[in-house]
Amino acid sequence: MTPISIIRHPKERRSKCSLTPLEGRQDVQFYRARENWSFDMTGFTVLGLGAPQLSAEDAGRPLLLLDSTWRLLPQLEACLYGEGVRRTLPAVATAYPRVSKIAEDPHGGLASVEALYLAKLLLGERDDALLDAYYWRDNFLNTLIDAQILSQ
């Protein structure tokens, strides 16, 4: 089972975060970024945009997910140091009905729990329990089936 580390932006609201139900899982470690804090990403697969697509060949490294709004993401990126392996996810429509009054989400911008689920799926570790508390679970799974990423 791939270990998962999640770094949250200090302004990320836990009450609205799709990852909050995963707190307490043995395979998931949460960190809260703060001023003058840093994280060594050496040896991690780091999910982000503009990198080669994640695949089964990336299995074996722990997974690092940055949990933030798109607008604040550069602040989390600035906390990282070391040599991680950056990967991106295939463009899939989110099922999360978000509306930003400040900025538009990039194409392929998923809710954090959707990104984590898809990453584990692509690594060959389907884990439906990640979506147990996700309200839009069925819509998201149907999106993955329609995109031929997930079979029924």
Rank of each mutant, 00 (worst) to 15 (best):
W70N: 03
Q29I: 09
L65Q: 01
V92R: 03
F44A: 04
A129Y: 07
R34P: 10
L130P: 01
A33C: 07
K120I: 04
L110W: 00
T2A: 00
L122Y: 01
P62T: 02
L54P: 02
N36Y: 10
P62W: 00
A119K: 03
T20Y: 00
L54H: 03
Q152I: 15
S15M: 09
A103S: 14
D58L: 08
T143W: 04
D138W: 00
E77P: 04
P62Q: 02
R32G: 07
S55L: 08
L73E: 06
G24T: 03
A33N: 06
G108K: 07
R71C: 06
I149Y: 15
S151R: 14
E35R: 15
E57S: 07
R32P: 07
F39I: 07
S38R: 04
S5E: 03
V46F: 10
R87Y: 06
S112K: 02
L22Y: 11
F30I: 14
L64D: 09
Y81N: 01
V113N: 01
G84L: 02
L110Y: 10
A103Y: 10
E35S: 12
R87T: 12
L64Q: 00
Q53Y: 05
R126H: 11
G124T: 15
A103R: 08
E57H: 06
I7A: 01
I7Y: 02
T2C: 04
D67W: 08
I7D: 00
M41G: 02
I4K: 04
W70G: 04
S112A: 15
S5Q: 01
L130H: 09
L144M: 10
A103D: 12
A115W: 06
S68G: 04
L49Q: 01
P62L: 07
M41I: 00
A56N: 05
L65P: 05
R61Y: 09
L118K: 06
A78K: 06
G24H: 09
V92F: 14
R98P: 07
P90T: 08
T94Q: 09
P62C: 04
R87N: 12
L141P: 12
T69Q: 01
D128T: 11
A95F: 09
G24W: 10
L130C: 12
L54G: 00
R126F: 10
D105R: 02
A91L: 15
M41R: 05
E35F: 12
R14D: 03
L63W: 08
A33H: 05
L123N: 10
E83A: 15
S15K: 07
